[in-house]
Every structure is written in structure tokens, then in C-alpha cells.
Design a protein around this nucleic acid. Structure first.
Lengths: 265, 265
DNA sequence: CGGTCGGTTGAAGCGCATCAATCCAAGTGG
DNA sequence: CCACTTGGATTGATGCGCTTCAACCGACCG
């Protein structure tokens, strides 16, 4: 159990045409730096693009942490394993996100392509150099770290105290918001990862995830559209089921905060 | 339920004489900056010290995030609440730690004194200013954030996949290491927080925490020394019970990594 | 066609939560 | 000094939510 096998390339490319997982529009957008200056994106722009097939690892937990990556297309899972094979996915990485930023000598987690992935890399030393010499890039990197920290705290709340239904609802809500489906009244939410991925991310089993998904379907909250996409039919109800705090429990677009890299410059 | 009442001052001060919760020796030491330069500690050193009694809040989730703090004495709990009162403690803050560093306008969590606490504060704008003008301080702050991120991931693993016993064992192990009890063959581990705090940190109930503690006692792994301290009798076994990965499963002093603020400078 | 893989569904079991009683240490007031 | 209170912690009995085990389905593939 807990053996994750690769999706076949065919399977994935069919389910996720390139446009779905490429940064575009206001969805999951990292702040373009004001005043047309340098951005983290533009820093990586000159590096050659590398491709990874679905199911392959970009690096492994314990590898020497030699590079920093920027994802330009596709989705990855970040996970750690316990001795006996228990797996915990600590996050998913989307286009525009950075990967491998840390102080340790070795990567603390494995990064594996969920879908076909395209990314660019920097040698760590060079990335350091670029960052430390750019008063424009530093606050951007800092902002990314803070966002990641906030997400980690949300996840801790989810794992520590939420029920299975609340966990699944929270997850669906987050990816609905991330994919920027806000503009549509009946948002289609792409779910690139497998049920096992969801389970290992939510601290549940595949069976429980599956049961909750069918229950949400039966209640008309969501409507499946193939294995890897759903329509969200009752967004407000979904938010309620997610057990969110009031201030967050608005509709989709309210949840996309205006993230500004205000400091330290 | 989940109502946290304050410890009386007497209760706490008796259980935790000042020396126990003040930074000293190699325990839980943040890196003094090399070459005798400026450190985050020294930055705060000129600020006046403020005292908070056990059980009082330094700030609340949702407050305008106006200040950044450095703890000089005592322990705090950092937590978030769900609508219905479920509480999740996302971390404990020890002397030498920073508090309230984030990009949001409002604090994302409440910070409450577990024991009597002494701390210094900076207005956020001024802290920003100091950081952005100091190529010595920036990497130190960055290092703190990375450490915090790593700790958050450990916690996610704990909450997502560990059993109750593994959670409690992990917790005891971490605070044993933090308090730097390595030098003693029979380390005394101070546990300033209540069982409820432990439960809300570990995603369990007080009853379960209590049961596990007595079970560990019966097996001779630990030996209680009052309510807020234990002797660790079988450290290796405790590490095994914690379900750690091999590379971490050494003795105490192996677990205190040499943290160097290597980048970005 | 059988084989594989991801997913769904059902039945049974278990680990932790819940509910409740009791204990203990310390504080309080007569 | 002693009854009484209070809050944290422990311990036991019971219940439930999720896991575990197992069967089965449908899509895809060699």
C-alpha cells in the first residue's frame, strides 16, 4: 500500500490540456512586480526549460539541495515518507511557484510530477547571488515564504481538527479558488491529482476520500466531470461544509487577497 | 469545552523558576551572528522589556499586525480557532524566538502567554526598515523563516499520519531536545504547557494525552516529576516510539543541527 | 481477451473521542 | 486549622468516525 505509480502520459495529457495548468489570467497569479522591474519569474525566464513526465521525481528527500526551480507548467506533489512507508503530501506546486528554496544542505522532501511538468532551474549558489544583490527580488521571495507559512498553518488546522468532510470540502474550495474559476457561475474545477494524492494530503484514506466525494455528489454540492474534474454546484454550501472562519467564508473572488510584497525591501 | 483558563501566576512561577525558561547554554540557541556583527537579538536589545502574566494574550488573531516581538523569557502558545471553538495550537514560542513576523495586515493567530513572559517589541515599519537596511540581519530572518517552515512540515507529518502515541512521543522528544537536556544522562524535561495545550497542539484530546503519558510511565519510558516535568528514562525507545526517520533517530545532541545563516546575504 | 490500475462500494474492526466520575493540589474563607 | 471550592489531570465505560479488508467496476492496454 501507499505505493504511488505513475499516471500514464496519455491519461494525464488527455485529462489536462496544456491551457488548464499554465499560468494565465488572474488565477493563482503571483504579483508581477510593480513599476515593471525585475520579478522572480523574469529571473528564471532565461533558463532553459526542462520537462518531466508525470510520475517522475524532480528530486528526492535527502538529495543534496543543489538547485532552485520555478514551475512553468503542470503540477507537482511535495511529500515526505515515514520509515514504514506512510506518506504525507505537504503541498502541491503550481505554475509560477518556486520549488526547493530552503537553507538545508539536503532537500527535506521529494518533489514528483503529478502531470507532465515544465520547469526552469538555477544552481542554488547562483540563485542566492541573484537574490542577495537585488533589493527588488528579496521582498518577493520573502512574500512567497510568508504565503507558504500561512498555507502551512491552514493545513495544520485542517489536519488537527477538521472532520473528513471538512477536509475534502476545504481542499476542493482551495483548488477552486486557485484555478480562478471565480468568473464562471458554475465553476469547473480541475483536480489533477489522484485520490491517493488527495488522501495523503488530507490525512485520510482513498476510501474515505471517495466516500465523501460521492456523498457531496449525492447532495448536489458538486458534480463529477470525469475523474479529474468537478463542477461546483453549491459553492456557499461547500464553504460552510469546509468549516471556515467567517471572514474567509465569502465567495470565490473574495478569497484571492491582493498580495503585495511590502517588505522588507 | 476548549476554554483555556489562565494558570495562576503562583502555579507557574513555582513550577518554572526563571532559569528554566531563559536562553542559556547551547539549548535552543539561535545562531549568534559570526564575526561579532549585528544579530536579531541585539537589534531588540535596546527596546524596553514588557511583561505578560500567564494566560494573557500578547495579540489576537485578526488584530492589526502592528508590531514584531522578540521573546526574552517564558513560553507562549500560538493558536487559531475555528468557528465553533475548536482550537489548534500551531506552535510554541520560546526565548530567542521572534513573534508576529508576517506580511498580512492582521495577525493570523493569537499569541498567549503560557508562563509569565518577558518580551521586547518593534513597530513593524521600523522593524522592516532595520531589516531592509541590514545585509547582516536579512539572512538571519530568512533562516528563521526556513526553520519555521521545516518545523511546520514536521508537524504536518505528525498530524496527518502519526498515531496518538507517536504524537506524544514526538512532542516529548522535541521539547527534550529544545531544552538542551542532552548533557545529562537522565534528562529532566520541563513541560510548561497544560495537557489541554498539548492536546490542541497534537490534534488529540486531553484524555488521550493523559492516557498515553501514563502508559509511557508504566513502561518506564518516562517518569513524571510533578505535572509539568518528566525524566526521560529510555530516550532511544522514546525516539523509536516517535516514529522518526532513521537519519533523525539519534541521541539528543545529534538532533541539534548547526544552523548557519548561509544565504541570502 | 485477460491484466492492470484507479476508483467505488460494502462489511467489520479499532483507535480515539465522548461522557462521566474521581482524584489531587492549591486557594479561600470562616 | 479545617471545610469548601476550583481547575487540571487521571481513569473508566461507551460510542462513533474513520480505517481496514475485500469485492467489484470501468477504462485502458498489450
Amino acid at each position: 500500500m501507499y505505493i504511488e505509480s505513475a499516471l500514464t502520459r496519455h491519461d494525464v495529457t488527455e485529462a489536462f490540456p496544456p491551457h488548464a495548468l499554465t499560468p494565465q489570467g488572474p488565477a493563482h497569479e503571483h504579483p508581477a512586480h510593480p513599476a515593471g522591474g525585475v520579478s522572480l519569474q523574469s529571473l528564471f525566464a532565461k533558463q532553459p526549460v526542462e520537462k518531466f513526465e508525470a510520475g517522475t521525481a524532480v528530486f528526492w528527500e535527502g538529495d543534496a539541495a543543489s538547485h532552485v526551480f520555478e514551475v512553468t507548467e503542470g503540477v507537482l506533489r511535495i511529500f515526505r515518507m515515514m520509515n514504514d512507508g506512510r506518506r504525507v503530501i505537504t503541498g502541491f506546486v503550481y505554475p509560477g511557484d518556486l520549488l526547493g528554496v530552503s537553507l538545508e544542505r539536503h532537500y527535506l522532501y521529494t518533489a514528483e510530477a503529478v502531470t507532465p511538468v515544465k520547469l526552469r532551474r538555477f544552481a542554488r549558489a547562483r540563485f542566492q547571488h541573484e537574490i542577495q544583490n537585488s533589493p527588488e527580488l528579496r521582498p518577493q521571495l520573502f512574500a512567497r515564504l510568508c504565503d507558504e507559512m500561512a498555507a502551512a498553518q491552514d493545513q495544520m488546522v485542517l489536519l488537527a481538527r477538521k472532520t473528513a468532510e471538512e477536509r475534502v470540502a476545504s481542499f476542493l474550495l482551495v483548488i477552486a479558488r486557485r484555478l480562478g474559476a471565480a468568473r464562471e457561475t458554475m465553476p469547473v474545477v480541475e483536480i489533477p491529482m489522484t485520490r491517493l494524492d488527495m488522501a495523503d494530503y488530507l490525512g485520510l484514506t482513498i476510501e474515505t476520500v471517495s466516500r465523501i466525494m460521492t456523498r457531496l455528489t449525492q447532495r448536489g454540492v458538486i458534480e463529477p466531470n470525469g475523474r479529474h474534474a468537478i463542477f461546483v454546484r453549491k459553492l456557499r454550501l461547500l464553504a460552510t461544509l469546509a468549516g471556515e472562519c467567517e471572514e474567509k467564508a465569502g465567495v470565490l473572488h473574495e478569497a484571492a487577497p491582493v498580495r503585495r510584497a511590502v517588505w522588507p525591501q
